[in-house]
Structure formats: structure tokens, C-alpha cells
Amino acid sequence: MTSCHIAEEHIQKVAIFGGTHGNELTGVFLVKHWLENGAEIQRTGLEVKPFITNPRAVKKCTRYIDCDLNRIFDLENLGKKMSEDLPYEVRRAQEINHLFGPKDSEDSYDIIFDLHNTTSNMGCTLILEDSRNNFLIQMFHYIKTSLAPLPCYVYLIEHPSLKYATTRSIAKYPVGIEVGPQPQGVLRADILDQMRKMIKHALDFIHHFNEGKEFPPCAIEVYKIIEKVDYPRDENGEIAAIIHPNLQDQDWKPLHPGDPMFLTLDGKTIPLGGDCTVYPVFVNEAAYYEKKEAFAKTTKLTLNAKSIRCCLH
């Protein structure tokens, strides 16, 4: 018999989150649709729960009410004593943790798909938090293969000092899905179709896995975050240069030392320094102006996964 890495157990509980950011409308629209008619997301033997994560922000069509829901799922915020004085999103995070967690427990949901849009030209993107997770690498390989020839990129946010504390991190297997470009507060049919297909293929993978299909060893190309880059700023902290036209919409493309990065209003080009080629992502993302992030630098690498098969009882 072929030796293989056996994944822990079959997958039982899956959640699909929309509206973690209330103005990213593809996930909101799909989740609302699936709450009314969820036939397309159901798979035999699998509990799939669509869920609106930040209903107040969705109602106002804004990213958040008090603070970013997708950055506060750490033990400090989840452990705060519940009171009306807490920011709305912290209270909501505790409610979500109660419903789908608790985080880092045996009772937490197996998989959470968190649906997002970006204003950046990132196409279909899967966000991975753990480079050693054979199950998710296999799932992402399946999704990428199923979507081809449509490109699907994998963004690895594993980093020693950049801690995200994402909404989906309460699950055993957290999956971020990011599709763009799409303006905030807008629905685009092409973007919706791409996100819908990503979810379909992900659920198909889980179904095949649960039925005992063995997935042979595989490898995927990923883009691992190195650092986030702020806009150049003046002495008052105001933005002093904008994304250069040569960099705009060039997510995932190589940016070499000396290539144009920013452009000042008086026409001066600010190039990339250093001696390493990087791959920019979230270029000129609207939501990241407040976070002082013009783009993120990534490096390209390959992740390998062992063969996996479900432990059938």
C-alpha cells in the first residue's frame, strides 16, 4: 500500500463567511444568496454554514464600524470581559468565536472560507496562513488546477512579526479568498463568478477527501510576504508620492531593483532599492491607505505537500 500522510479526520463542519468587511460585496451577495438557497454549497455528509460576519458594517456598506474585524481574533480580544464599552467588532468577534470556535479547541469548525474583495488587480487569490499544512496545500492545488487556465495565486502570510489574527483563524483550516479588482461597494459579475467557482472547487475537494480519495504528493507556487511598504510621506505625515503608473495593476509581476515604484507630484520617480527582485501584491489597495500600506513585497517559492487521505471509520 502506498505510504501517505493521513489527515486527522474527515471534514464535518464548514463555514463560509461574507461581510467580514461590509463594503466587499461579492461575499456579502453570495452568502445572502446561499442563506436563501444553499443547494449549490451542500455536499453529502458535510455541514456547510453561510454566515454574515459583520452585519452592521454590511448594512452601512462600510469596511467596519469601530475597528477591523479581520485583525482582532487574538486571545487578548477574544478574552476581554464582555461589555457595551467594547468596540462593536470586538464584541462581534467574541460572538463569532462562540459560534464557530472556540479558537484553538477541538470544537472549532474544521474549515472557514472568508470571502473578500480587493481594489487591487490580484485576480483569484487564496490566502494561506501555514506553509506546513498538507491538507490546505492539497486543497489549493486542486482549486488552482480546477480553475486553469484562469490564474489563481496563493498568498502566504506566515511571518515572524506580522500577526494578522484573522476572522477565519478560529477554524482548524483557515482559508482566505480574495478576488479583484473590484471597487468597494460595487458588485461585478465576473468577480462574483470567479469567487463562486473557487468555493465550488473547494467544496468538491472536501467531498472527494471525505469519500476516501487519496491525493498524491503535489507542489504549489506561493508568494510569501516579506514586508509592507508605506507611501513616501512629508514631515507632516502626508502622502508625498503615489503608486507609479508602471507599478499600478502589476500585482504578482516581478519588481526589480531600480524599477519605478512611486511618483511625486513634481514628476520624480522613486525606484525600488535593494538588490532583490520582489513580487508586489495589494498594490494601491483602497482599504490600506489608513493602514499606511502602499503594497506588500513578496518572494516566490514552492511548497510541497505529502499525499493525504481521509481516515475512514
Rank of each mutant, 00 (worst) to 15 (best):
H10L: 08
Q12H: 11
K13F: 05
I16F: 05
F17W: 10
H21E: 05
L35N: 08
E40D: 09
I41C: 06
R43Y: 06
R43F: 04
F51W: 10
T53S: 09
T53H: 05
N54C: 04
P55S: 07
T62E: 15
C67V: 11
F73R: 12
L75T: 11
E76V: 08
N77V: 12
K81C: 09
D85L: 08
L86Y: 11
E95Q: 15
N97S: 14
F100I: 14
F100G: 08
G101M: 06
D104K: 13
S105K: 12
D110M: 02
D110G: 05
I112E: 01
F113Y: 03
F113P: 02
N117S: 08
S120Y: 02
N121M: 05
T125Q: 00
L126R: 02
N134T: 07
Q138F: 02
H141D: 04
Y142P: 00
I143T: 02
A148H: 15
P151S: 11
P151F: 03
P151G: 05
Y153S: 07
L156F: 11
I157W: 10
H159I: 06
H159S: 12
S169I: 04
S169E: 06
S169N: 13
A171S: 12
P174D: 07
P174V: 12
E178I: 12
L187T: 15
D190A: 06
L192C: 13
K197Q: 11
K200G: 12
L203G: 00
H208I: 13
E211Q: 13
I220H: 00
K224W: 03
I226F: 11
D230W: 06
Y231K: 00
E235P: 12
A241S: 07
D249Y: 01
Q250T: 09
W252G: 12
K253S: 14
L255T: 05
P260W: 03
P260I: 03
F262D: 03
F262L: 06
T264C: 12
L265Q: 14
L265M: 15
D266T: 08
G273S: 09
D275N: 06
D275M: 10
V283F: 02
V283T: 05
V283G: 03
A286P: 08
A287W: 14
K291Q: 08
F295R: 02
K297S: 15
K297V: 14
T298A: 15
T299C: 15
L303W: 01
S307D: 05
